[in-house]
Design a protein around this nucleic acid. Structure first.
Lengths: 250, 250
DNA sequence: CGCTGGCTTGATTCTATTCAATTTTCGTGG
DNA sequence: CCACGAAAATTGAATAGAATCAAGCCAGCG
C-alpha cells in the first residue's frame, strides 16, 4: 500500500478548499493556494527544521519569532491546564501552518506526534513579504479561515455530551481531513495514540477506550489495528457523527 | 453610567490586538486595523442592515453571498444538532466580522441576540478589493487570527470537566473581551441569557444556574442583577478560571 | 397586580471519571 | 526470529457529578 504523498514541493505550501466557491464545486478537495512564484519567494525566507517524536517545538509564552509550515509529520498544538492535564487544541499536518501569536508570544505549545519536517519562517520577514504582495495574503486568509473552521469543529465535538458520539465525530473528522488531502479513505488512519485522542476530545483515556469498544460492539466500525479504523455501518456511523442537522422550517 | 462607545466610524471597522507585537506591548488592548482610506474604500461596497432581537441573519447551508461587519449589538453563531438542541459557537460584537463560508455556503447559522446593526459586504466585490490591496488583507488576516484564537478558547472552556470551572472561564473570557474593547470592567456585563450561556459552554440550563449559585455561595462573585456580575474574590476567581498554567521545567 | 418567560431548585437517573488490575502491543537486544 | 520489558490500551468496580424532568420562583412588564 503506497501512501499518497504531497505533490512536488519546492517551498512553503498551503492547501485549502476555497471558502468562496470561485468556479465549479471543489467537492471538498483542497488545492494548492500558492503559485510557484509565491512558493519561491517564501522559500527565500524559509529554513527547514526537523523534530523527532514527542519533541516540543515551542512552548506557550515564549517569544514568537517563527511561523512554521509543515512538510511532513503531525504536530499537536496544546495548552497545559495543570501539571498532569493538558488539552490538545489541534492536530496539524502537511501544508498546515502554525506558530501564530498574540502580542508577540506563542499562545499554545506545540509538539511533534511523530517525525516532523517543517519550513520555518521568521516573522518579521514574513510580515514584510505579506504586506507587499497583494495575492499572497488572500491565500493566507483563506488558509486561516480553514483553520478557524477547524477550531470551531473541535468545539462542536467536545461539547457533545455522549462519549461515543464524540469519538464518532472525531473519527469522521479525521476521515474528512484524509479525503480532503486526497488520501485513501477505505480506512481511517489515526496518526495519534489513544491518549492524544482523549486529550483532544476531552475524555479520559478509559472512556475513549470504552467508546471504541462501543462502536465496535455495535458494528459501526472495525479495526484491524489500533490505528486503522474501518467504518462498517456507514449509515449508522454518519447518523451518529453528523456535525449538524438540516434546520427544518423555523 | 455612560457606556464606552466605539470611536467615530465612517465605514467598516476591524479591531484586534496585534498578534506580532510591532511596537510596544499593547496591554491586551485592541486597536483599529483599518485606515480611514481603507474604511472609505470598503464603505463603497457596504450597505447597512439591521436585525431585531432573535432574528435569524442567515442559515447554515444557504448560499453565502454576504460578509457582515458588526456596528452594534451582539450576534450568535450556532450550529444545530437536532430539532431541540443547538450549540452556540461564538458571540460576536462591534467590529467583528462574520459570514465566512466553505464552498460557497455558510457553515453555521447566525442570529441576533439583541438589536443588531451591521455592514453587509457582497463577497465578490470584497474579494476583488482584497486581492488588489496589499495592506488591507494583512489586516483581515490579523482579525481572523483573533477569531481563530477565540474559537480555540471556547474549545478550552468546553473541554473542562467541572461545571463551575467552565462558567468561571466563560465569565473570565467575557471580562477579558470587555476590557480589550476598553469598556469598564468593574462589572462583567452579560449580553446573553442563561440559555445562551448554556448553549455556548455546553452545559444544561440547570447546571449553569447551579454553577452561578456555586460561585456566589463561595463568594467568588456577586450579582446585582442576572446580567451584571462582579468578581468579589479576584484571587480565587482567577485561579479557577485560569486558561492555562505555566509549564514547569519539562 | 397579575402574567409570562426566564431562571432556580429538588430528586432521580445515567454516564463519565477514577483507580487499579490486566492484557496487548511494540521495540529492543539476545 | 524469538523473548523480554516497557509502554499503551483495555477492562472492572466504585464513585462523583451532570442531565433530566418537574415543580416552584422571580423579575420585568403590561
Amino acid at each position: 500500500v503506497s501512501k499518497p504523498v504531497p505533490s512536488q514541493r519546492y517551498g512553503p505550501s498551503l492547501r485549502a478548499t476555497d471558502p468562496w466557491l470561485r468556479g465549479k464545486p471543489s467537492q471538498g478537495k483542497q488545492h494548492q493556494l500558492l503559485s510557484e512564484d509565491e512558493k519561491a519567494r517564501l522559500a527565500t525566507l524559509a529554513s527547514i527544521v526537523r523534530f523527532k517524536k514527542n519533541e516540543r517545538i515551542y512552548r506557550e509564552g515564549e517569544s514568537a519569532g517563527m511561523v512554521f509550515n509543515i512538510i511532513s509529520g503531525v504536530v499537536g498544538i496544546y495548552k497545559k491546564r495543570s501539571k498532569t492535564d493538558r488539552h490538545i487544541v489541534a492536530f496539524l499536518s502537511a501544508e498546515d501552518i502554525f506558530g501564530l501569536a498574540e502580542e508577540g508570544q506563542y499562545v499554545n505549545s506545540a509538539f511533534a506526534l511523530n517525525s516532523v519536517t517543517a519550513y520555518c519562517l521568521p516573522v518579521p520577514a514574513l510580515r514584510r513579504l505579506l504586506s507587499s504582495d497583494a495575492g499572497l495574503d488572500v491565500h493566507v486568509i483563506v488558509k486561516l479561515c480553514q483553520e478557524l473552521r477547524q477550531a470551531q469543529r473541535q468545539a462542536l465535538i467536545v461539547v457533545q455530551k455522549n462519549a461515543t458520539t464524540r469519538l464518532a465525530m472525531f473519527l469522521s473528522l479525521q476521515e474528512h481531513l484524509q479525503s480532503s488531502r486526497n488520501e485513501l479513505t477505505t480506512e481511517i488512519y489515526l496518526p495519534m495514540d489513544r491518549t492524544a485522542i482523549a486529550e483532544y476530545i476531552g475524555l479520559s483515556l478509559a472512556t475513549v477506550s470504552r467508546a471504541f469498544r462501543a462502536l465496535a460492539d455495535t458494528a459501526l466500525i472495525s479495526h484491524r489495528n489500533r490505528r486503522h479504523i474501518k467504518v462498517v455501518d456507514r449509515k449508522a456511523f454518519e447518523k451518529l457523527a453528523k456535525f449538524s442537522v438540516e434546520e427544518t422550517s423555523d
